[in-house]
């Protein structure tokens, strides 16, 4: 039974795309057939982590949603195009498909102007799972709680809400948690990212679980090493022994157990 895993955060800048890419890559590395959809059509970004640019990504989700191409023509198999960076190269031969959104200015403004059909997206996701026989489909959502996001949340089997340990994130995440519960998401997990090293992570996890009444899959540290990596690679593959990468694998274990 395939699972839809939405990775969401109420605010931008939580490291959502980066986390999605790392989780999906690790699940693929565990031998599962994995897809990643960038539904952040207004500001797509996950393709960069997989070394794609406007030319190499080929057809996009935008074209599929307008009914111009079938879904399989949008799928880009990372396992066949890893490039030679130290982390991504480990994905060679794995089934990891990216469904990129267009990064063309005209395409983005078209979506902003017209919106896109939420139901069509839903159909598309089912189409992806079926056509590519996926075990897991990861959705990198748009921050906030707009209609597309609510749709992504509602059709998720697993929802991972990323938050930083700061007040603005706490407030927005509290709202998102309640909405997700109202939408009856089966498996809701929080993921704390960019935690300052001065915090006691164990204590932080317990506090947040208490306040949100929701399990925290991991507390990931804020790390300068990540900034140096500058989005050019999949961090947890390139630096598997780093505390951040270990935290990511903890989340992956949680996801695989649900599957």
């Amino acid at each position: 039974m395939s699972k839809i895993v939405s990775i969401h955060s109420f605010r931008g800048g939580t490291g959502k795309s980066n986390t999605t890419a790392n989780l999906a890559a690790q699940v693929a590395l565990a031998g599962k057939r994995v897809g990643i959809v960038d539904t952040d059509i207004q500001s797509p970004g996950i393709h960069v982590l997989f070394g794609l640019d406007g030319v190499s990504m080929g057809h996009t989700l935008n074209e599929y949603l307008r009914g111009e191409v079938p879904i399989e023509e949008v799928a880009f198999n990372i396992g066949d195009h890893t490039g030679d960076v130290s982390g991504r190269v480990k994905l060679a031969g794995q089934a990891l498909y990216l469904f990129p959104s267009s990064i063309k200015g005209s395409e983005i403004s078209r979506v902003l102007k017209d919106g896109y059909d939420a139901n069509k997206l839903n159909e598309g996701l089912q189409d992806m799972i079926k056509t590519l026989n996926l075990d897991y489909l990861f959705i990198d959502t748009h921050p906030g709680l707009n209609e597309e996001t609510l749709l992504s949340i509602s059709i998720s089997d697993i929802l991972i809400l990323i938050m930083r340990p700061d007040n603005q994130d706490f407030q927005g995440t509290a709202v998102t948690v309640d909405i997700a519960k109202l939408l009856l998401v089966d498996h809701l997990h929080l993921l704390v990212n960019k935690a300052l090293s001065r915090y006691d992570f164990g204590h932080l996890k317990a506090e947040i679980e208490g306040v949100f009444d929701t399990p925290v899959a991991a507390v990931l540290p804020l790390t300068e090493d990540m900034v140096e990596n500058a989005s050019g690679d999949i961090f947890s593959l390139a630096f598997p022994d780093h505390p951040w990468s270990k935290g990511i694998r903890q989340v992956v274990d949680t996801i695989l157990k649900i599957g």
Binding site: N167, R198, D200, E207
Partner: peptide, 15 residues
């Protein structure tokens, strides 16, 4: 240092 750690608690409470 201990006070800074304590702030985490305060942050969460401020919803």
């Amino acid at each position: 240092e201990a006070e800074l750690k304590e702030q985490v608690k305060k942050l969460i409470i401020q919803i």
